[in-house]
Simulated scan of single mutants.
Amino acid sequence: MRDLRRGSTMWLVLIVDRARVALTRFTVPSVSGDGWTSDEHPIGFPATQLVPSWTARTPPGSWIEVELQAVTAGGRRTRWYVMGRWSEHGEPRTSVAGQGDGDGDVAVDTFVARQPVSAYRVRVRACGPGARVEELAVLASALPAPPPEGSPPSGLEPVELDVPALWQHAHAGHHPEYDGGGANWCGPAATAMVLAYWERGPEDLAWVGAGCPAPAVDHAARGTYDSSYLGTGNWPFNVAYAGTYGLRGFVTRLRSAAELERLTAAGIPVVASLSFKERELPGAGYSTSGNLIVVTGFTAGGDVRVNDPAAPDGRVRRVYPRAAFEHVWLRSSGSGGIAYVLHPPELSLPESDGNW
């Protein structure tokens, strides 16, 4: 479980006529010495949040650090903020709390600006031998409230991707040192489902213990655990974990269910982050301050097919009404449409409007 409210009320979020989102992917050369720093990258609109994500390989004893520096609307550069220290082996695998100042703060994995920013630079440091970044992306966004009417169905053929269904509550009490066990493992369960769909995943599972219904979920919990946040819901850490098994990926914001339809129609399941009260999402049967689910397709009528690992009755495969799903997912009091996309590097993504 990821509490989407954590850190989200500290700064003013700019409300604009429509969602403004830009995802930029950077080519990172071999990182050594003082590391690699991008050129100053203009965003093209006043942004209020920045989220980097990456895939990397870090042999034992090595790790990477990812930092961001924003440029205010007046052209002044902020200081550098640490957005994550990552090792696929842990030690370190941590966000960095307590970085707030007059320009903004880091809420786990998101730089939240006090005032809108116009540009940024990203920096990567490699520590130890052999660490390399395979893919680096930065999401810049400003959030509106979603349109109350939602988006109409796209008219695409209905689809249901054959994503294995994994239930986080089947892991209750497992390895509580990683965010308390199964009740909080929506992120690891969602990531493990997508890895299994792409026929990827870990082999070193003997340590999980006998009788586990899906050892890959326990492994993903260990592999995504953020030792500062004390949780497994760090979005970039889930992407980076999947990257250790050959997938590429990024965190982005989508503007509508129609964009989800385009991705699932291309055979790509999407992990979406949302929060809701039970009454707001018919068929859910529970309330959550933050949940990660896998969108697996759409019905002929445009409703959303999902694998929901938090389903209280164990029926992971569900269909949620399109308008209700879109509302609780896109609203700025929740995640604002946050999703992460994981795919094999040889698979081309469908055309986008700048957010993948």
Rank of each mutant, 00 (worst) to 15 (best):
R2I: 11
D3R: 12
W11S: 11
L12Q: 13
V16P: 04
R18I: 02
R20M: 02
R20S: 02
A22F: 03
A22M: 01
T27P: 04
S30T: 14
S32K: 14
W36G: 01
H41N: 13
I43S: 02
G44Q: 04
F45Q: 03
F45V: 02
Q49K: 11
P59N: 09
I64T: 04
T72P: 00
G74N: 11
E88K: 12
H89A: 13
E91D: 15
P92F: 15
R93N: 10
A97P: 00
G98Q: 13
D101L: 13
G102W: 14
G104S: 13
V106G: 06
D109V: 11
P116Y: 07
A119I: 11
A119N: 07
G128R: 09
R132L: 12
E135D: 14
E135W: 08
E135C: 07
S141D: 08
L143T: 05
P147H: 10
S151Y: 07
S154D: 04
E160T: 14
H169P: 01
H171T: 04
A172V: 14
G173R: 00
H175C: 06
P176V: 14
D179T: 10
A190Y: 02
A192T: 08
A192M: 05
V194G: 00
Y197W: 09
W207E: 01
A210I: 12
C212E: 12
A216W: 13
V217I: 10
T224L: 01
G231N: 04
W235R: 07
V239Y: 01
T244D: 06
Y245F: 09
L247I: 08
R255V: 00
A266L: 02
V270K: 03
V271A: 04
S273C: 11
K277T: 14
E280F: 02
N291C: 04
L292P: 01
V294C: 03
F298V: 12
G314E: 07
R315E: 13
R318D: 01
A323L: 15
A324S: 15
L330H: 01
L330G: 00
A339M: 06
L342W: 00
L342A: 02
H343E: 05
P345V: 02
D353Y: 07
G354D: 00
N355K: 04
